[in-house]
Design a protein around this nucleic acid. Structure first.
Lengths: 366, 366
DNA sequence: AACAATATGTTGCTTTAAGATACAAATTAG
DNA sequence: CTAATTTGTATCTTAAAGCAACATATTGTT
């Protein structure tokens, strides 16, 4: 795949093995699988998952979520704690996030940390600079710098918008998003989004690419997508149609599943608006696939045929329709993505960790 | 910029100079410019523009356009000829395009051709394969292969959708499009578009990214952008408002300039729809700038303030608004882009021309 | 069981692109 | 005229990758 010669790759692997990042697989799986072939069998390799770890933290409006992943990008640990971000200054929020992320990391493992990613609901540039973050009341702060100051060790740091971080995380859990163009849509009370091109986040000019929630949809009241298909609207409608005040999403989904007419009307409307958004997105970025996440994504399988029908209505028949798939997005998705950013960076060619001295050097955290 | 050492770059330049692609500038411009500085002055270099050339051809519905550019991407020659693409098979159309492009190339210059780009109004994959091209009635054709077969010499070949090719060409004429995210919109009878990221075309999953013309706009009759702001609608409205049948675009633009009320009403509507499209685009790909081309783009400067006002109405005030600039797109823009594709390819790192033997070798045309 | 065919790992050597160093050359400033 | 500064270039060094040959481990065939 990389076009490397056998001996070249052998040398590189020897280096990585010596450094402890890679090891030979002991229980030989080739013998278990039936398929064999003439010739000396190759040595199977695996990442030494425990050789390094990465931390991600999401500072939300009401909680801080943290995730630790290992070198193989497995989730090692994850925490969620309530937190009122608006009541404390940025510095304190970040301090809390860092403390929560490092809390269960034993002292002797600290040196294996190779990156800390921060995710927050704010628009920022590629260097973590936030001009105005209305949601948390932040103004002109340098998140990278603040995070670096709060960290107990000197490791690379990156801050990213929460929706973008989520998209990065989703490229890890969604295997097919490693290539091609993928549009992620997370449907909760808001509708967030991100775009990945060949497994790498597409930020756009100012880090706002994929913010699909504010797309205008055809609606008498000039709603945007978030207002039209978000949890709030659906539950409002369901509440007034049932007359009950204590309705939950599962009840609504159950009614749609049971084909209760009032629920179907709401779902049909939802499908139409979603189809509209998908068509708009397709026209502009022509994604290979659209990945739906968030709690309301569970509605999609129930009305997939309706969404497809509405799409066909809106599109010329020759126009390609992207695959639409579900991603069971977990609550820690954005923190996971923040950790994955650092994992991606660690494994990328411009990792400065190995640039000069292969012995223990300090990673530059620019 | 490239992080190369002085001696390394010197070696590379020596090679390029020996090969005739680069030469030292003779009339020393440093002496003319007032600014000087201590130290031995550097040797100024320039591309030997005549060392190579690239051809681009656009097979349109009613014409074939060709462009020749040199190594410095200067336009050397350009031709337009009427042609009824629908009346002949693909092979013939391509043969004609190739013939027209090579017609004025003298025999002894043939060897300097380093690429042929083809542009056509059809959706194709990255290898020039068209499944269905309804506009020209093409079906399951391999444009790269057909073009290669029609060429008098063996040079690299690439086919690309006309709107995408246009965007590539525009990155050459629009200097600021070399970095960041640029959205091109060409407003004629249709509205075409393309997206460039850091000067490179973003094709999307199937080469349709940026096809902004079919975006839905908020309109009682559910029009798409093309129907709403294209030349057809504007002229229709202007025709019925003036009562004259022979109106031309310049008349309309003159009336808008003169603030004739009936024209202003039409222009205001145009501005509103354009603003809507720009907002939608911004939400999805967050471009640094939007470049308007096509004959109707001339209307923009007259209503720029109105477009800005409508955008502000639709957007939250914190949301960044991309720069909107004009590009006087010429009739040969798509053919130019096809030629520029080859130029870009020639100058790119994965140019196979120089991969093995620095002496005259055949370029692989995969 | 022996041997051919096949594929992989490994070792030593070669190639090549880039960098380092030193020095010559060309300029400005004083 | 000299010092300071900057660039060009020749020579050497370094490092990454490839090449070639051979050892090794496996399947298939006689």
């Amino acid at each position: 795949m990389m076009g490397l010669n056998r001996s070249s790759s052998g040398n590189i692997i020897a280096e990585l093995t010596a450094a402890g990042f890679v090891r030979e697989v002991q229980d030989d799986a080739t013998k278990q699988s039936g398929y064999t072939r003439a010739g000396r069998p190759g040595i199977l390799l695996e990442l030494s998952a425990e050789a390094a770890f990465f931390l991600g933290a999401e500072v939300g409006v009401e909680h801080i979520t943290t995730v630790e992943i290992d070198l193989a990008a497995n989730i090692v640990r994850s925490t969620i704690e309530p937190f009122d971000a608006r009541s404390v200054p940025v510095e304190e929020a970040i301090r809390r996030a860092v403390a929560q992320a490092f809390r269960d990391v034993p002292q002797h493992k600290l040196g294996l940390c190779e990156g800390f990613g921060l995710s927050a609901p704010a628009q920022m540039d590629g260097n973590g600079h936030v001009s105005i973050g209305p949601i948390l009341g932040w103004r002109d702060v340098d998140l990278n710098e603040l995070t670096r100051a709060a960290l107990p060790i000197d490791v690379p740091v990156l801050a990213e918008n929460d929706a973008n971080a989520f998209a990065i995380g989703a490229t890890y859990t969604q295997a097919d998003a490693r290539s091609g163009v993928t549009m992620f849509m997370v449907i909760e009370s808001g509708v967030g989004g991100g775009i990945a091109i060949d497994g790498k986040l597409f930020r756009g000019g100012r880090g706002l690419a994929g913010e699909v929630g504010h797309l205008k949809v055809p609606d008498r009241e000039e709603r945007n997508l978030e207002q039209a298909i978000g949890l709030g609207r659906i539950m409002d409608k369901y509440r007034s149609s049932t007359g009950r005040a204590d309705v939950r999403l599962v009840d609504f989904l159950g009614d749609v599943r049971d084909r209760v007419p009032a629920a179907i009307v709401i779902a049909e409307d939802w499908a139409r608006m979603l189809a509209f958004a998908i068509v708009q997105v397709s026209r502009l970025i022509d994604p290979d696939r659209i990945v739906l996440g968030g709690s309301l994504a569970e509605l999609y399988p129930l009305v997939a045929a309706r969404v497809a029908a509405h799409i066909r209505e809106l599109q010329a028949p020759t126009f390609p329709i992207p695959d639409i798939v579900l991603n069971e997005s977990a609550a820690y998705g954005s923190a996971l993505g923040a950790a994955c950013m650092m994992h991606q960076r660690f494994l990328s060619l411009n990792n400065e960790r190995f640039a000069d001295d292969p012995s223990e050097g300090n990673a530059s955290t620019s």
